[in-house]
Amino acid sequence: MAHRRRPSLALLASWLAVIVIVLVSLLGKSSAAADFWLDEFTTDGDVRIDHDHASGQKVASLILDRRSGAGFNSTQKYLFGEFSVEMKLIPGNSAGTVTSFYLTSGEGDDHDEIDMEFMGNSSGAPTVLNTNVWASGDGKKEHQFDLWFDPSADFHRYTIIWNRNNVIFQVDGVTLRVFPRYADLPYPDARPMAVHATLWDGSYWATLKGQIKIDWASAPFVVSYRDYTADACAVVGHGRTDCPAGSDGRWMNRVPDDTDRLTVAWAKRNCLQYNYCDDGWRFPKGFPGECSRS
């Protein structure tokens, strides 16, 4: 009978070295993913940082259960910019949940805010994207859209462009809404804002105006974020901002072009399911000033 040769100590050592290198490499990728989110954001609740090796993307997942929701917010504040992230929403019955990607200057009565909120749905119903703009505490400017795809089946890109001229909301590069600036009306142009993302229980209003609550038997609910970018003017202290080179040509002077106007008109015809400028019950004393101009 032939005897198998035992591997030499030198060969075993080389194998162990290879294994260590592989493990260090994998851990390094995971650590890099964690470092990115932990360096850029503070977190609250159950936030899990992973590295998706299939796509090579860093992924931050927010978890909602009976105990609490979750969120993260940027440590940096900005005054104008283009903010973008890919998100994969809750599959199945997500009724009562609210997922968000937004900018805000804080919690005060005179705060500024720009919102993209995704209101959960019963299985099979469209997911509603709620967009809103607050300026000096003046809000109630919602446009709500039925998304034309399943946002839980894959990642999709959601973008807020905020400059001196307008706020532009995009989904997968398609402009759905433009909120223009008017010199005599409130506009968010003075208060620096941080970037936030949250997942929380909005049962009291999110789905059919609160008629359908969260089914906790389906918990935990998970929303994943990846490929976040902020091409923006960072506030660096004493009111000074540091704008990236070339921002004037990318987003600072961005206004709607012909393509934007076409896609906004398409979204209005096919996806818009609520427009505050049509809600006379909400504004019995007259619509906000911009309603008669846009």
Rank of each mutant, 00 (worst) to 15 (best):
G202C: 07
G202W: 02
S203V: 01
S203P: 07
S203R: 02
Y204S: 15
A206V: 09
A206E: 11
L208D: 10
L208P: 01
K209E: 12
G210Y: 14
Q211Y: 13
K213W: 03
I214W: 02
D215I: 00
W216H: 00
A217D: 15
S218V: 03
V222M: 05
V223T: 11
S224G: 01
S224P: 06
Y225P: 08
R226T: 08
D227R: 05
D227E: 03
Y228D: 03
D231Y: 04
C233R: 07
A234K: 11
V236Y: 03
V236M: 04
G237C: 07
G237V: 04
R240P: 01
R240M: 08
D242S: 14
D242T: 06
D242N: 14
C243S: 04
A245P: 04
G246K: 00
G246H: 00
G246D: 01
S247H: 12
S247A: 09
S247V: 01
S247D: 05
D248L: 04
D248S: 06
D248V: 03
G249N: 13
G249H: 12
W251N: 10
M252F: 07
M252Q: 04
R254Y: 09
R254C: 03
R254F: 07
V255R: 13
D257I: 05
D258G: 15
D258E: 15
T259C: 05
T259K: 14
D260N: 05
D260W: 04
D260F: 07
L262C: 05
L262T: 15
T263C: 04
T263S: 14
V264P: 10
V264N: 07
V264K: 03
A265I: 08
W266C: 11
W266R: 11
A267M: 10
A267Q: 12
A267I: 12
K268W: 06
C271P: 01
L272N: 10
L272R: 07
Q273V: 15
Y274Q: 10
Y274S: 05
Y274V: 02
Y274E: 09
N275E: 08
N275Q: 04
Y276N: 09
C277Q: 10
C277S: 12
D279L: 10
D279E: 06
G280W: 09
W281V: 13
W281H: 12
W281L: 12
R282F: 06
F283G: 08
P284I: 11
K285Y: 15
K285Q: 13
K285T: 13
